[in-house]
Computed example of a mutant assay.
Amino acid sequence: MKNKKFDKELFSYLDDEELNFTEYDRELTITKIKKKRNRKSNFKGLLQSIGPVTATFLVIILSIGILLPVIYSNDDNQLASHDNNSFSVLLMGEEQRNRTTLNILLAYNSEDKTMKVVPVPRDTYVSIPDGQGETIKDKLIHAGAYGAGPKTVMETVSQLFDIPIDYYATIPAERLAKSLSLTKNDTKRNNFVEEIKNNLSISNMKKLVKQSETNMTKDQFNTLDSESISVETIDIREGINAKMIDEIYYVEIEENMLAETSNVLQEHLD
């Protein structure tokens, strides 16, 4: 029997796609999401079939397997970026259904009091962890819809630039765009580097983060002195190419640009 609620959710999600979203694209996205839901459904059926005691034992084992890497990963991130109180933050302009139309990576160095800013295009072709041990190739704008919302977006950008990202802040996309003097066309065309250079000051960033959903600690927030921090925007546009994959529009960051940006950010956070 066809699940009408599921179909409604899928097509309400797809209706918002804005660039070259064909009927084939719809079917491709539907298939991806169905596969994810089927995995969850099959797992639930397995638990029911093997009995409550065995199922409980299996859940405990799986939980240990899932939590231990997360715990140790968090510890590693703390050691990697907090020894000198430097840290990284991903600002996300979020719309409905966990779509992030604006993604801005910030890296703060506490020793020289400088902030590196990397605007990441929404249509960037990325590998997205789906929470089931698999990765999905899609646009960055869709990362949150495949996994655990902002944490999946944060993990996706972290893997893209090969650096730890310590904090995130999700801000309504319209509010974030307005604060940066961006139009909707600017974000659709991935053309907003100059506006960020001119409008993303430390005081503006602090105001945005304060009004956002964030995991940034109060202590880290208070280390940002608006008057003493220098902000530099890293422009990666020269290393970006537009491309079509299965008649879907993407932008791809060249490997040398990714490596160069990653090195700059890693050195900045050390």
Rank of each mutant, 00 (worst) to 15 (best):
Y167H: 11
V153C: 03
L180A: 00
T170C: 07
I163W: 00
S73F: 02
P172Y: 04
A173Y: 12
S73V: 01
E155Q: 15
T156G: 13
T124G: 02
V120Q: 07
T187R: 02
N103L: 02
T135D: 13
N85A: 13
N191A: 11
K139D: 00
D138Q: 04
D138A: 11
V126P: 01
L90G: 08
V117Q: 10
D123L: 02
P164N: 13
F192N: 10
V89F: 00
S73M: 01
S181W: 08
Q132K: 11
T183L: 10
M92I: 07
N85H: 14
Y108P: 03
V89H: 00
D130Y: 13
K151W: 02
V120W: 04
Q78K: 14
F87E: 03
A143M: 05
P172Q: 06
D138T: 08
A145D: 11
H142M: 06
K113T: 10
D75Q: 15
R175D: 14
S179A: 15
I171H: 05
I141M: 10
G147M: 13
I165Q: 12
R122Q: 12
G131R: 05
I165L: 12
D75W: 15
P119Y: 10
T187P: 00
G149C: 04
H82N: 15
F192Y: 14
R97M: 10
Y167F: 15
T152M: 07
N98T: 06
V117G: 08
K188R: 09
V117N: 09
G93S: 05
P121M: 02
K137D: 09
M154Y: 10
N74W: 11
L105S: 05
T152L: 02
Y125T: 03
T152D: 01
P172S: 01
Y125P: 01
S179C: 04
L105G: 03
T114H: 01
L106E: 04
M92V: 04
K184I: 07
E134I: 05
Y108S: 01
K116P: 05
E155L: 14
R175T: 14
E94P: 00
R99K: 13
P121D: 05
N109L: 04
K151D: 04
N191W: 05
K116R: 11
T187A: 09
N109Q: 01
Q159A: 15
R122L: 06
S181Y: 12
D76E: 05
N190V: 06
Q78A: 04
S127Y: 10
S81Q: 14
I165E: 07
I136Q: 09
D138N: 12
T183W: 08
I163N: 00
P121Q: 09
P164H: 08
N185T: 12
